[in-house]
Computed example of a mutant assay.
Amino acid sequence: MIRSRETPSVVAAILDWPPTALMARLALVSAYLLGAVVKATDFPGAVAEQAHFGMSPPAFWAVLTIAVEIVGPLLILTRRWLWLGAGMLGAFTLLAAIKANAFWAMPTGHDRFMAMNAFVEHIGLIGGFALVALLDRRERAA
């Protein structure tokens, strides 16, 4: 049992290792980058997805989604206007969660439970975007 308030040396070494921050940011945005690649390589599928969720016109929303899923991660990964990338992906994630995982409008059961879990997971991602922007701001201010 660790009694000290100090970070264990092995954990500190990992956290202080320069590539760790980049790898953490990459992990945070990886699903969005993958989503952009999948949508860009199957644009008719991306349009169909937008139509499925009632977005009109679906081609416009497919292009906008691809753009957000490319630009947001690049801003976070490069730390150039990281706050903007985090805000873009946070807002996008919230809107997508509300549109795709409206568990409150579903009858009780397995599907509602799964939608609620997905919604809460998306809220966790939004928290991750807020934290990455906060940590970047603090590091730049120090």
Rank of each mutant, 00 (worst) to 15 (best):
Phe103Ala: 04
Ala46His: 09
Ile14Glu: 06
Ala86His: 00
His122Asn: 12
Asn101Leu: 00
Phe103Trp: 07
Asp42Pro: 08
Gly54Lys: 07
Val47Thr: 08
Met116Asn: 05
Leu82Gly: 08
Phe119Cys: 10
Gly35Phe: 07
Val47Leu: 09
Val11Thr: 02
Met55Lys: 15
Trp83Thr: 03
Ala13Asp: 11
Leu64Gly: 03
Pro18Arg: 15
Pro8Ile: 01
Val63Trp: 01
Leu28Gln: 00
Leu134Asn: 07
Ala100Gly: 08
Gln50Asp: 04
Ala36Gln: 09
Leu15Asn: 14
Met1Trp: 14
Leu135Phe: 05
Ala130Arg: 00
Arg80Pro: 01
Arg79His: 02
Thr20Cys: 06
Leu34Lys: 07
Gly72Trp: 00
Phe60Asp: 07
Ile66His: 04
Trp61Met: 14
Trp104Glu: 13
Trp83His: 15
Ala46Val: 09
Ala27Met: 14
Gly127Gln: 10
Leu77Ser: 01
Glu121Phe: 09
Ser9Gly: 14
Trp61Gly: 04
Gly127Asp: 05
Arg112Gly: 01
Asp136Leu: 06
Ala130His: 01
Val37Glu: 03
Met116Val: 05
Ser9Met: 13
Leu135Glu: 13
Ala31Ser: 11
Lys39Leu: 05
Trp83Ser: 09
Ile70Gln: 11
Ile66Lys: 09
Ala46Ser: 03
Glu69Tyr: 10
Gly72His: 01
His122Ile: 00
Ile2Pro: 03
His110Gln: 08
Thr78Gln: 13
Pro44Gln: 05
Gly124Asn: 10
Ile2His: 14
Phe92His: 02
Ala142Ile: 07
Ala133Ile: 02
Asp111Val: 05
Val37Gly: 02
Leu82Ala: 05
Trp81His: 15
Ser30Asn: 06
Ala105Phe: 07
Asn117His: 13
Ala96Met: 14
Ala51Phe: 02
Phe129Ser: 00
Val63Ser: 05
Ala133Phe: 00
Ala24Cys: 11
Leu89Phe: 00
Ile123Pro: 12
Trp104Ile: 04
Val71Asp: 01
Met88Thr: 03
Leu26Val: 13
Trp61Ile: 06
Ala142Gly: 14
Asn117Trp: 14
Met23Trp: 12
Gly87Ile: 08
Ser30Ala: 13
Ala96Cys: 04
Gly45Cys: 11
Trp81Asp: 12
Val63Met: 09
Val10Trp: 14
Arg79Thr: 04
Thr41Cys: 03
Arg140Gly: 12
Gly90Ser: 06
Val38His: 04
Thr7Phe: 05
Trp81Ala: 12
Ala36Tyr: 02
Ala115Ser: 13
Ala141Ser: 13
Leu26Pro: 10
Ile14Gly: 07
Ala59Glu: 11
Ala46Trp: 06
Ala118Met: 04
Ala51Lys: 11
Leu94Ile: 11
Ala21Ser: 14
Thr93Ile: 07
Ala51Val: 03
Thr7Ile: 10
Gln50Cys: 05
Asp16Glu: 14
Asp136Thr: 13
Phe113Asp: 07
Phe113Arg: 13
Met55Ser: 12
Ala67Tyr: 04
Pro58Gln: 00
Val11Trp: 01
